[in-house]
C-alpha cells in the first residue's frame, strides 16, 4: 500500500470560533491506483489533499506514505517529502512567471534531483507543448498553463500525484484530454493519483471514488 490515511482530524479557527473541517477521515491508495475525491464545497477535500501532500499538518490521526508517518515530520521534513515523493497540481496553475515553459517543466525534477532532459521534452511533447517551450506563462492560455503545471509534476516522477481540481479552468474537451494523459502517465510510472474534483463525469474516469460530506467520508 502506497498511502494510508487513518482517522485524520483538522479544524481551523475562524472569526473567533473553531470550525471542524475534517472529522476523522480514513482512506488507502495503492501504487498505480487512481482515486477521485468528491464532495460539496467546504466538505474538506482540498484540506485532506493538503494534509496528504505535507502542505499542512493534521490535528490528529496518521498519514503513512510509503511506510513513513508524515504527520511526525517537521517543516523541513515535509518539504523534503514534497520534493522527493509527492507532486501537486493546483487549480491555479502556480507556475513561476519569470521562467520559460521549459524551465517551469524542469523545475521540480531538478530540485528533486531526477531531471532527465529527454524525459522532460517527451512529457512536454505529449502535453502538446513542444512549440511553447520558449514562451513564458503569461503568453499561454489557461489550458496550456495547466498542461505545463501537470507536465512539471509528472516530469519529476513522484510516487504520489495530488491534483486539486486540475481541470477546473479548462473546457470539457480539453479537461478530458488532460485527465486521460494524467491517468495514463501516472499509471505508466507506477505512481498513484489522488484527485479532488466536483465533476461526477471526471470522477467516473478514475479507478475509485471517495465522497466527503461535512468533513467525513459519506
Amino acid at each position: 500500500m502506497l498511502l494510508s490515511v487513518e482517522d485524520i482530524k483538522k479544524s481551523f479557527r475562524s472569526a473567533g470560533s473553531v470550525v471542524d473541517i475534517l472529522r476523522g477521515v480514513s482512506l488507502t491508495l495503492d501504487a498505480g491506483e487512481t482515486l477521485a475525491l468528491t464532495g460539496e464545497s467546504g466538505s474538506g477535500k482540498s484540506t485532506l489533499l493538503h494534509l496528504v501532500g505535507g502542505l499542512d499538518a493534521p490535528d490528529s490521526g496518521t498519514i503513512m506514505l510509503d511506510g513513513q508517518d508524515i504527520t511526525t515530520l517537521d517543516d523541513a521534513g515535509r518539504a523534503a517529502l514534497r520534493r522527493a515523493q509527492v507532486g501537486v497540481v493546483f487549480q491555479q496553475f502556480n507556475l513561476i512567471p519569470s521562467l520559460s515553459v521549459a524551465d517551469n517543466i524542469a523545475f521540480q525534477a531538478r530540485i528533486a534531483g531526477r531531471y532527465d532532459p529527454k524525459q522532460s521534452a517527451e512529457m512536454a511533447a505529449r502535453m502538446g507543448l513542444a512549440e511553447q517551450m520558449r514562451k513564458y506563462p503569461e503568453q499561454l492560455s489557461g489550458g496550456q498553463q495547466q498542461r505545463v503545471a501537470i507536465a512539471r509534476t509528472l516530469a519529476a516522477r513522484p510516487r504520489l500525484v495530488l491534483a486539486d481540481e486540475p481541470t477546473g479552468n479548462l473546457d470539457e474537451a480539453t479537461a478530458d484530454d488532460v485527465l486521460d494523459l494524467m491517468v495514463e502517465m501516472t499509471k505508466a510510472s507506477g505512481a498513484a493519483l489522488l484527485m479532488v474534483t466536483h465533476s461526477e463525469r471526471l470522477a467516473a474516469r478514475l479507478d475509485r471514488r471517495l465522497h466527503l460530506r461535512a468533513g467525513a467520508v459519506a
Binding site: 501532500g53 502542505l55 517543516d75 523541513a76 518539504a79 523534503a80 517529502l81 514534497r82 520534493r83 522527493a84 509527492v86 501537486v88 493546483f90 502556480n94 507556475l95 513561476i96 512567471p97 519569470s98 523545475f107 521540480q108 530540485i111 528533486a112
Partner: peptide, 15 residues
C-alpha cells in the same frame, strides 16, 4: 509571494 509559495509547495525548504 506566489512564486515562493509554489517553490515551497514543490519542496524547497523555507529556511
Amino acid at each position: 509571494r506566489s512564486v515562493v509559495r509554489t517553490m515551497r509547495a514543490l519542496g524547497v525548504p523555507l529556511n
